[in-house]
Design a protein around this nucleic acid. Structure first.
Lengths: 113, 113
DNA sequence: ACCGGGTTCCTTGCGGTGCAAGATACTGCT
DNA sequence: AGCAGTATCTTGCACCGCAAGGAACCCGGT
């Protein structure tokens, strides 16, 4: 059985990961595996690519990212993802939602001693 | 259709709410509706009681809380919930998980300009 | 020519959790 | 009796992350 901490981490990622991907694209476009290694580096934000691709597909359907294919010298072509205007707006809206949420959790978890 | 912000908030709550309940019980025992009004006050952490009771049931099954019935002068008897030793330990473990997670999200969302 | 390993994309089935809506039941007031 | 308020719990649903696996491409070694 997976540990309680791992289960907790999995649940924490729900809904946050989507916007972490958008945030990762704010500076520059990137392709799938690049995002996977970036977000999965310390195993805090992403556990496997099986999560990422369906998520990217959703973002594309919702119009938050646009994609272009580019050749690679080291394998099959890469699909690059780029923020749209709607994507920027969604990221801003989430940031405004995240901050009060984070503060509410922080203040509850603070040890009241 | 529900707004994107509401959907995001719902997803944010996943897995966090459970430990917010434990944190709310750290100082003193409480009963269901009391927790519901406390956590739902600003609509940040809890949307409805339909979430809370199954959650409390799970906590009981997992042995993180213990319960006692107490009469009420203003309605049906109340079931009071109280943290067990395992509950305290789970809350501490979650706090240690939450902090790096929160910091990872914060640093990604920070505007890199 | 062929095979194996690295790269890149994607799909399937599953499990866990929050939500709205409604069901049940007890109290006290009219 | 009837109604509003208090309190607990159940049902059906929707969503998202995950592990596991599959398909296709490139290159270097044998």
């Amino acid at each position: 059985m997976t540990s309680a901490v791992e289960r907790a981490q999995t649940q924490l990622r729900k809904g946050v990961l989507e916007y972490c991907v958008l945030a990762s694209l704010r500076a520059a476009p990137a392709y799938g595996l690049e995002l996977a290694t970036l977000l999965g580096r310390d195993r805090v934000l992403l556990a496997s690519e099986g999560t990422l691709y369906p998520l990217l597909s959703r973002l594309r359907t919702q119009g938050l990212v646009a994609t272009t294919w580019q050749e690679s010298t080291s394998g099959p072509p890469r699909r690059y993802y780029e923020l749209t205007d709607d994507g920027h707006a969604a990221l801003d809206a989430f940031t405004a939602t995240w901050q009060p949420f984070r503060d509410a959790v922080d203040s509850l978890l603070e040890d009241p001693r």
